[in-house]
Amino acid sequence: MRFLVMICVMAAWPLGGLAQGFAGLGTDAEGFSVPRLGTEIVFPEDHGAHPEYRIEWWYLTSNLTGADGIEYGVQWTLFRSALAPEAGEGWSAPQIWMGHAALTTPDRHFVAERLARGGIGQAGVETAPFAAWIDEWRMAGTSDISDLSLTASAPDFAYDLDLVAEGPIVRHGENGYSVKSSEGQASYYYSQPFYRVEGTLNLPEGPVEVTGGAWLDREWSSQPLSENQSGWDWFSLVLDTGERLMAFRLRETDGGQFTSGTWIAPDGTASAFGDGALTATPLSTTRVAGRDVPVQWQVELPDRGLDVTVEAMNDQAWMETSVPYWEGPVRVRGSHGGRGYLEMTGYE
């Protein structure tokens, strides 16, 4: 549920006045399409952009290990935000794109951001073959996205990774229709959590060869948040057993919460869990960028005998971007071992 960072596009807006915060997404979506239960997700078309929806992203996170055993995290995200429900052409196209790239080591966290107008070719997504790009950052490969190459660069870091899918695409919720609140807000949401990764990280001190896994999230919607929701905590965990868990908790302004998740078997079989089936409880916080952010969690899914502690690999994985948030690799201990990614938004 990374969707929400999308708003940031607006906050990134140099003309200002739009930093309405994460809650702003709960407003009505005039003229935009709204996800409907029962709509079939179709490939390769749905790997591409859906300009008639307000927000959309291609969100890849990767847990990697160097030859010396040092662990790394990599994030590559392309957001799309529409000012109007149409693709358009040239400078007048109402589509705005934003890229975030991050590289996390146990003691450092590199971040870069790019913004682009749609309609002039500076950023976009194509499906045959698949390519998503903003400036020179690029995620591209086969139409079925089973074989991708991924690059991003910044003055202080760069990476170049090859991704091969070793399992099927997983649809969340009801066949890809993912409910986000008790009031029925929803999005289309599918993932490819089975990538095997090889490649090179470019750090200030030199290149590092790495291997590991990656998880791609695809989501699009027009009104994904309820008005009383203030932020979320999102987990993508790859367990040593070969099983995977996507879990999120939407925090409500009155202290309540809405939880949801998908349990993914090693063969890709998905089981959706609705509100209340899983719990995520902060255990300790750390001071990051002037705020207290929970970097140690207890995540429980009693139905699958899961009771784990999830801990940030690097507490300081703060995304100092147009709208800032926390996003970084985590380690999993307890009933299951493993690793994954954690995203937290709305911590003021």
Binding site: L15, L18, L83, A84, P94, R117
Partner: peptide, 9 residues
């Protein structure tokens, strides 16, 4: 400027 569309579009 409340609505960026007004500037961009």
């Amino acid at each position: 400027l409340e609505d960026p569309s007004a500037f961009l579009r």
